[in-house]
């Protein structure tokens, strides 16, 4: 029930933000469409903790500044590599161990790796990921430890200490 309420709140905010017209006719259309969406989502079974991670929003917002700084640094590296008259890239593939437990944390970690230019996740397994990097020096498994730790805090709520943890 709590998640259904959360979904309805999110949809209401989305409608109010997108429409921008606050007349009774339009608002009643909004109420009808929100009701239909909530009923359909309930029929699909999308009302558990996994599909509506509202309790993860604040840790995720705390994670974004770090991610933005990483993206800016990686962007500069790739732009330098593009603008050099002679190619001197060194593509590599590495297996990166992850300590993330839940699917959400793994998605955050893999998406962060792909979002930073210069590294792309090729395959996601249970506790490791195959990563293709533009420079060998930047794509060492140690370089991802910090991101892994922060992603597991954002997705799992704590730095998990699995068998893949190094510290």
């Amino acid at each position: 029930m709590l998640y259904v309420m959360g979904l309805a709140t999110a949809l209401t905010l989305l409608w109010l933000g997108m429409s921008g017209i606050y007349e009774p006719v339009v608002l009643s259309l909004g109420v009808i469409s929100i009701a239909i969406t909530v009923i359909l989502a309930t029929r699909l079974g999308l009302k558990d903790r996994e599909t509506s991670p509202y309790h993860r929003i604040i840790p995720f917002l705390l994670y974004t500044p770090y991610l933005i700084v990483e993206i800016l640094k990686a962007n500069l590296t790739v732009i330098k590599a593009i603008l050099k008259p002679d190619m001197d890239i060194q593509p590599t593939m590495v297996k990166v161990k992850t300590t993330c437990k839940s699917d959400l944390a793994k998605v955050i970690f893999a998406n962060s790796i792909t979002l930073t230019p210069g590294t792309v996740t090729l395959r996601v397994d249970d506790d490791s990921m195959l990563v293709h990097g533009l420079y060998e020096a930047d794509a060492q498994p140690e370089a991802f430890e910090e991101m892994d730790r922060r992603a597991s805090i954002a997705g799992d709520g704590r730095p998990s200490k699995g068998k893949g943890a190094t510290k």
């Binding site: 993206i71 800016l72 962007n75 790739v78 732009i79 590599a81 593009i82 603008l83 190619m87 890239i89 593509p91 792909t114 979002l115 930073t116 230019p117 210069g118 590294t119 792309v120 293709h132 533009l134």
Partner: peptide, 26 residues
């Protein structure tokens, strides 16, 4: 524009992917 130039210049598919992700982010 720089990212599109990278997509043209880089030698193989996986490296082009890195150049394309500059567009998506920066």
């Amino acid at each position: 524009v720089i990212a599109a130039a990278g997509v043209l210049r880089f030698p193989d598919f996986y490296t082009r992917l890195h150049a394309a992700s500059v567009t998506d982010t920066l």
